[in-house]
Amino acid sequence: MEVKNFNVLLVDDELEFLETLVKRLTKRGLNISTAKSGEDALKIIRGKGIDVAVLDVRMPGMDGIQTLREVKKIDPLMEVIMLTGHASVEVAIEGMELGAFDYLMKPADIDELFYKLQDAFKKKTIQQEKIEKLEEIIS
């Protein structure tokens, strides 16, 4: 499978968890940034283009859902994968309604996460292309 290099932001309050995940995903050829809180995540998103974000639902301060809302305000095209600690369907549904791409349960299988990330990026790319085409037609 062709692996495209795209920008991923991981948001979790557990630094150790982030570190390993960064290593593993980097090894699979992705550009990873990390944030350990919702607020940090928003700063990074504003700063540079992020394609897909992985948000932990449960975090001190801004939680996953709040962060998701803000993210969608800043960059509606950006895809978000929710990471939940438990099979909390309400949270998942709420996330999906707010426009999350998918959700995964912790501890997530690395390959599953990797594929989901790719799917999300694909979706984003397609959306972007559509918009570009529309813009061309309009202009």
């Binding site: 557990e14 150790e16 968890f17 600690g85 438990h86 912790k106 501890p107």
Partner: peptide
């Protein structure tokens, strides 16, 4: 759950 996730990740 979190430590276990980290261990599995490691």
């Amino acid at each position: 759950n979190n430590p276990v996730a980290i261990m599995v990740e490691e």
